[in-house]
């Protein structure tokens, strides 16, 4: 017998037959009167920043706020300030020097400061984690209250990769002291347009 069968048979033999139905996950839950504010304060508390862009382009915002950076890469189509095209690169390892990645976020979640990032057009997902700074551009009308709404917007009927990013990478593994910037981005800004 293969291991697969052995395991499945053992489960079949041992498991009780349940009377518990799969519960409804859409329970009544927190709603925020001001989702923008909740998102911004939550993101702040996990080390990130939220900015609402008014009468300015993303290009201008980057030019003003990220000076003197050598390598800027973008998967956000409306942005023109890239210094190289990530998708052209043969291997993701070549993204190691990226100072700023301007990427597209699908929507933001007020309760936890997270942004859903899933972009089939981006060839190297390593970009999200190798870049020293992340600027995530999100439509300002796309903020939901909680993960209950969030998962209604997520679809994996096809193969792919997606991640929630909530602030910069961090660790507290040395004496519980919070240090921003573990292996991923050291700075994260969510830009609402």
């Amino acid at each position: 017998m293969s291991s697969r069968e052995t395991i499945l048979n053992s489960i079949k033999k041992n498991r009780p037959s349940s009377t518990i139905e799969l519960p409804n996950t859409d329970i009544s839950h927190v709603k925020y009167r001001d989702r923008d504010k909740k998102f911004a304060t939550t993101l702040k508390s996990v080390g990130g920043d939220a900015v609402w862009l008014e009468d300015k382009s993303v290009d201008e915002f980057v030019a003003e706020n990220y000076r003197d950076l050598d390598v800027i890469v973008s998967t956000y189509l409306e942005f023109n300030g890239s210094t190289k095209d990530a998708n052209e690169l043969e291997t993701p390892h070549l993204l190691e020097d990226v100072d700023l990645a301007v990427i597209k976020g699908e929507f933001a979640v007020a309760e936890n400061g997270a942004v859903w990032v899933k972009n089939p057009k981006n060839h190297h997902r390593a970009l999200y984690f190798l870049a020293t700074r992340l600027l995530i551009v999100v439509d300002k009308n796309s903020i939901v209250d909680s993960m209950h709404e969030a998962y209604k917007l997520i679809d994996f009927s096809r193969a792919g990769y997606g991640t929630f990013i909530s602030g910069p990478s961090k660790t507290a593994d040395i004496e519980q002291a919070l240090v921003i910037g573990a292996h991923g981005a050291i700075e994260v800004c969510v830009l609402f347009v």
Binding site: V109, R125, S146, M147, F156, Y161, T163, P168, K170
Partner: peptide, 23 residues
């Protein structure tokens, strides 16, 4: 919603990655 709050009091882990394909 439960995991990180129970673990460290964070509202969610920094990364929650959904792998449905290799690179």
């Amino acid at each position: 919603r439960l995991l990180a709050r129970s673990a460290t009091g964070q509202p969610i882990t920094t990364y929650t990655s959904h792998f449905h394909a290799p690179i």
